[in-house]
Simulated assay, not measured.
Amino acid sequence: MDLTKLKQEIISYSKSIGIDKIGFTTADPFTELKNRLICQQELGYQSGFEEPDIEKRTNPALLMEEPRSIISIALAYPAKMKIRVESKKGARRGIFCRASWGLDYHHIIKDRLQKLETFIVLQVPDVRLKSMVDTGELSDRAVAVRAGIGWSGKNCAVITPEFGSYVYIGEMITSLPFEPDTPIEDRCGSCTKCLEACPTGALVQGGQINAQRCISFLTQTKSLIPDEFRDKIGNRIYGCDSCQTACPYNKGKDFHFHEEMEPDPEVAKPLLKPILNLSNREFKLKFGQVSGAWRGKKPIQRNAMIALAHFKDQSAVPDLIRVLKEETSPVARGTAAWALGKIGGELALSALKTAKARETDPEVLREIDKGLGLISNC
């Protein structure tokens, strides 16, 4: 078999199916990554969303019998909306991060990988392949870096020379010993703009992140947001792009290659108040196709309340009072109580006093007291 020829055929085919960049690397263990992950684990910096077995995250041989190479792919996504919608007084809007614009990227990447698998099997019927994206065991970023897709930036994102860090990535382990591509040298230099831009100081140092402080992680949790982060979340209702927008390699980068990635502005930048009143069915109809919906309705509603508090939106007070009165979730009631305190006013004050008299959940009572304290300090 002429693997050099096959590699070129795979590269050519990948372009025809909408893969913007492709790279090849060995299936050797990711030894350096393993050491970093152990360190992250010991420091308590992991998010908890990752594959818990570090060996599986760093050793392809544990995922497929006799792997010989890994193919990494990247697809560029838009950085700007073609149609903009504005946040106005009385009609405030939240924002999903760019990686959650358009169709859920897991579906997009899986589609391209499946097409690539079909093509390779036609050429080599007895080949063994295993594809994954994000929720798989391997570290997508480590594979992409070693395959020459880009380098690992100080913001922990893969930065490509062509598309900046606005790329979705995925990979395929193969039983074919393809010639590996050359990794790209780190080009961040002495720049620290991403570290300076991080609202919560989650970027501990270049290339190291404390996920427990990262807004992207915090917006995906299901518990009450810790006090120190609430004001910093702003109007973000899923994810955070601060470290990406600050990166010089993303300046002027905006690619609209894939129709399924184009954002619906009413979904990517939705009105906040209606979110508080969505049923599960309504939530799925409106947001179910985007990656930011993976944790369900409750975190998005909690984040929407924090965003309304950020805007001090008086028109949202009746909606927040309804949540405080009617929601069964202590997290929802507690966040509503805090948000009412941040917004303030006589109506909010009265609602908080009434709620305090009937509330039995200790966590919610603490949030009610915080809200009352915020109003008294105005």
Rank of each mutant, 00 (worst) to 15 (best):
E228H: 01
Q114C: 09
N250K: 13
P274F: 10
Q8W: 10
S72T: 06
A336L: 02
G344M: 10
I215Q: 02
G296I: 11
Q123A: 13
S279V: 11
G252E: 15
A332L: 12
G102R: 04
T25K: 04
D319F: 14
D126P: 05
A357K: 15
H106W: 04
L116Y: 01
W294D: 02
E51N: 13
V267M: 05
G164D: 14
K222F: 00
G48P: 01
P180Q: 01
K34F: 09
E55C: 09
T354Q: 14
M305V: 05
G136D: 07
Y13I: 08
G201F: 08
L43F: 03
Q41E: 14
T182D: 09
G334H: 00
G234L: 07
P263G: 09
L285P: 00
K356Y: 08
A142H: 12
C194G: 09
G206C: 02
A76P: 10
I19W: 09
G252W: 11
R141W: 08
R112S: 07
K312R: 14
K56F: 06
C240W: 01
H310T: 11
I300E: 04
K232C: 06
G136I: 08
E162W: 12
G44I: 08
P263M: 07
E363D: 04
L33T: 12
V133H: 10
E55D: 15
A79P: 01
A157V: 13
I368G: 08
A337F: 06
N155I: 13
R146Q: 15
E282Y: 13
G170L: 11
K110L: 11
L372H: 00
K130Y: 14
T25P: 04
M172W: 13
C188V: 10
W338E: 14
R333K: 11
N377R: 03
R93M: 05
L285D: 14
T160N: 10
L365N: 06
T25R: 09
E162F: 15
A211N: 07
Q40I: 01
H106L: 04
I10W: 01
K370R: 05
L272F: 12
T245W: 14
D134F: 12
G164V: 14
G371K: 00
L122V: 09
